[in-house]
Amino acid sequence: MSYIRPHFRHPEQPVNDLGYTRRHYEGSLSTLCAGCGHDSVSAAIIQACFELSLPPHKIAKLSGIGCSSKTPTYFLGKSHGFNSVHGRMPSVATGANLANREMIYIGISGDGDTASIGLGQFAHVIRRGLNMLYLVANNGCYGLTKGQDSATADRGSVSRKGVPNPFEAIDLCTMALQTGASFVARGFSGDKAQLEPLIKAALCHKGFAFIDVISPCVTFNNTSRSSMGYEFVRDHIDATGKMDFVPLRQEISANYEPGSSQEITLHDGSVIHLYKKNGALHQHDRNQAIRNLQTHREQEQILTGLLYLDPDHCEFHDTLGTVKQPLRDLGEGDLCPGSRALEAINASLR
């Protein structure tokens, strides 16, 4: 088995605004199973960060435990990382974000890490509206412990063990909508053309962005009767529409047919173009998004794409009214304003 990826790259690899190639956003060679959907998720993150010209040192990757939580090793090798306790990634992310609000936070979790042991943390980090990308690589099984059905496995879905799952599934997108996430999307690791713009938009979104990525487990949950195998997902996938992400400063070159598309401007000025399949769909209608998901579930369809977006939602720092700069930038003068400031405060309370 190869443990080292060759160092040679295509001599004509594209270069981004920072002068970096994709190579600068890569990580170590993956040790996941061959064909794991998670590796495609990693590749999509690499591509998105490369195309957005994000400086790697301004990104922090956070994860918990599980196959998905191993993946931060396999992308953004030059970025910061924290592989935390099982299901506790949101707490660590919250702490890091409060200490340094200037970083870009990418939380990677799995269906076990989020929907089982970390369900409480998941709900609360959404409630708070932490400014981060929370991405779940969702394969419906516990791949790291031999493929037991997870909390997101659909009832009746059959993994390699051969026994239909008797329990109801938790739909993470529905839950994220109900607990107040301002950006909710679903992707499929086997469709990067859709996943990459979703990740780019989520990274540019100010506030809590959640992407549930169906990422098949080739080893334990890629059977013909599993609802999370490549074949089933391809046969049952539906999308809210096609999406283009146009970062700030880039001229819009495509021609959009009037009426069929909707433009959403994000907080940083970049624009999402949606070509909706259904003209009546409103990306900012939370109730409609939940209903939409439910209807598709009933029809055994998997709804993907951008499900809900509120670009002007309040994020955690705004709610708390915290200082505008990272804590590490606060000098002695800021932290110990002196007796005169104290007197002023006291005076104001008299």
Binding site: R5, P6, H7, F8, R9, H10, Q13, R22, L29, S30, A34, G35, C36, G37, D39, S40, S42, A43, S189, G190, K192, P216, V218, N222, Y230, E231, R234
Partner: peptide, 15 residues
Amino acid sequence: CIECDACVDICPTDC
């Protein structure tokens, strides 16, 4: 081929 993209992702020279 199941079109999982694993080969695309690993190929060092984007072939």
